[in-house]
């Protein structure tokens, strides 16, 4: 129930912390995001803010979307996303959200689309072992048995098999914000995040479940 930000993955590098330790970081161009709509309990049944990110040419968007953006006098924005909130009073239409909503040391979740790997086999997709490569073996990357014989006479649903891998939504949880550059709207996040450079990311304060540690 807190506001996040949309951004673009720029790539990875490393920075040194105060003890001289090298930390691997992902550089994210976070924001600026424009508040394009404020949803309230009365009108929409729940309260949330909608933010837009990624300025583009108006001809790239359709007229209904441009009309929607014109209500908040926002430029043509490619991506829209919602953040559910209890209290939307501190946000106004057209307000800009910048990278400075995060502070160094904060724990965040990063949501993005993983790199698509196409039709992948068992080993890559499910970390199956492989068969012997030599000694006359012809079973190299084959799946092995996929179940019993006449009984049950079918393959159980959910059997792990080759197929499309990647290209789906992935959330990487509990990553640390290492540095924030509010001037250039950059956020440096420790560790790797989904997708290639140029991918759209949604960075939200970490959703912590369970009892907090005392």
């Amino acid at each position: 129930m807190s506001v996040g930000i949309l951004g673009t993955k720029l790539g990875m590098t490393q920075v040194f912390d105060e003890t001289g330790k090298a930390i691997p970081v992902t550089v994210v161009q976070a924001g600026p995001c424009t508040v394009t709509q404020i949803k309230t309990k009365q009108t929409d049944g729940y309260s949330a803010i909608q933010v837009g990110f990624g300025e583009t040419k108006p001809k790239a968007l359709n007229k209904p979307l441009l009309g929607h953006l014109a209500k908040s006098s926002a430029p043509a924005l490619r991506h829209l996303s919602e953040y559910r909130l209890d209290n939307t009073s501190e946000f106004a239409m057209g307000q800009q959200l910048k990278a400075d909503i995060f502070t160094p040391g904060q724990i965040v979740d990063v949501i993005g689309t993983s790199i698509g790997r196409g039709f992948a086999g068992y080993q890559k997709r499910y970390n199956f072992g492989r068969g012997p490569m030599s000694h006359g073996s012809k079973n190299h990357r084959a799946p092995g048995s996929i179940g019993a014989g006449t009984t049950p006479g079918r393959v159980y649903p959910g059997k792990r098999m080759a197929g499309r891998l990647g290209g789906g939504q992935v959330t990487i949880r509990k990553l640390t914000v290492v540095r924030v550059d509010p001037e250039r709207n950059l956020v440096l996040i420790k560790g790797a995040v989904p997708g290639k450079a140029g991918a759209l990311l949604n960075i939200v304060p970490a959703k912590l479940v369970g009892k907090p540690k005392t």
């Binding site: 673009t8 720029l10 590098t13 920075v15 550089v27 161009q29 440096l188 450079a197 140029g198």
Partner: peptide, 19 residues
Amino acid sequence: SFSKIMNAQEIIRSIEAEQ
């Protein structure tokens, strides 16, 4: 997207250049 990534490389280099 290519030109965006080129710019991204410059940003990453500038972060590295400080160190």
